[in-house]
């Protein structure tokens, strides 16, 4: 796998989340889901947001996608406020795949292109390019009910990449898959991300698995339990290609540190003094 070399400080800021709050009104009580969340994502970065269930990370991602809006604060893409879902800015991959059951693989991938108004003549080449990329060539006529979970998610990824958005947003994309399939897909996603030919190279992913985050990301943003606050914004220094923590002590250290941070914020023990 190609090693991606870039200096964080010189790259452009694509996404800025600025002091975002989100409140919900639930059975006449106001519940705060997100509390003053701020961070930025630069071009070519792979950022993972981790946190326990219910900490608001899905809501945060949806605000980045433009599907929801903050109660206070701003979500800015290249300096402009995100006003609604725009597939050219960001495309999303869903935990439950969200494929249309009446369309086959080819037609599902075509959905985004139809929406952004790509001329019909250009569509086949784009769709076939991504079918090939995701190894779906033998299945382009198949319907979702005929596909396994892993394949469905490949279709989801192809669909998102086909519109060639600036950012790719992923909502726990592998949590509905078995461990082996998830491992393969993770590697495939990283390959796509680090490939200079891919037009989309800013990836934001949510997960509740810390090892997954450390495996995939340049930076891990850790959210606390509800109301979600940013506990840490860590630059993952482990060199790529990364192997899992059973073999790499640095990897293990990083995972461990993040786990301690989360448990500290939930009322656990105090972490080691060298927390950044």
């Amino acid at each position: 796998m190609k090693k991606k070399q870039h200096t964080q400080k010189k790259a452009r800021v694509e996404l800025e989340v600025r002091r975002v709050f989100k409140d919900f009104v639930e059975s006449k009580k106001r519940a705060r889901a997100l509390d003053s969340v701020s961070f930025s994502v630069h071009e070519h970065e792979f950022v993972c947001i981790v946190g326990p269930s219910g900490c608001g990370k899905s809501t945060l991602l949806r605000m980045i996608a433009g599907l929801e809006f903050p109660s206070k604060g701003d979500v800015l893409f290249r300096g402009k406020r995100v006003g609604g879902p725009d597939p050219k800015t960001s495309a999303m991959i869903f935990q439950t795949f969200a494929l249309l059951p009446w369309r086959n693989v080819y037609e599902n991938i075509s959905l985004g292109l139809e929406s952004i108004g790509t001329p019909i003549e250009r569509r086949p080449s784009i769709i076939n390019k991504y079918i090939k990329l995701m190894d779906l060539e033998d299945f382009s006529d198949a319907y979702p009910f005929e596909l396994s979970g892993g394949m469905k998610q490949r279709v989801g990824i192809a669909r998102a990449l086909a519109v060639e958005p600036r950012m790719l947003l992923m909502d726990e994309p592998f949590s509905a898959l078995d461990a082996l399939t998830a491992e393969n897909l993770r590697r495939d996603v990283l390959e796509i991300w680090s490939d200079p030919r891919t037009p989309t190279n800013t990836f934001v992913m949510i997960t509740h698995l810390i090892d997954e985050a450390v495996f995939m990301a340049d930076r891990v943003i850790v959210l606390s339990r509800r109301p979600g606050k940013v506990i840490a914004d860590i630059h993952v220094d482990v060199e790529r290609p990364r192997v899992d923590h059973a073999r790499d002590p640095e990897f293990f250290e990083m995972c461990d540190m993040i786990k301690r941070m989360i448990s500290y914020h939930s009322g656990g023990t105090i972490p080691e003094p060298d927390t950044p």
Partner: peptide, 25 residues
Amino acid sequence: PGDILEASRAFGLKNSMLYKKIFLP
């Protein structure tokens, strides 16, 4: 299902396209 509606919105499907491609089928 909620996720299909979300996905459709996320891909920018609006109004007549939304009805034709998602609701009616």
